[in-house]
Amino acid sequence: MTRAPDDWLHAAKMDADRRGLPALKPLLTALADATRVLREASWTHDALGSPSTSDDPESTQPRDEPR
């Protein structure tokens, strides 16, 4: 499996279908969104704890989350 989020998401959804878990697909989409944010995180230019200019504030909140 390739590691770019889009490719990963495509493969993961196919796998979910193969395993009879289609309900997993929207959660996989949300996880892919969160993974993109994690991978693109700017850990240095963040003096005030607010989103840096290169980040979309909405995208820092995954759409679905456990617990």
Binding site: A34, T35, V37, S50, P57, P62
Partner: peptide, 11 residues
């Protein structure tokens, strides 16, 4: 600092 990343980190 970086608190806005806490949801994706914890997830």
């Amino acid at each position: 600092h970086h608190a806005h990343y806490s949801p994706v980190v914890c997830l």
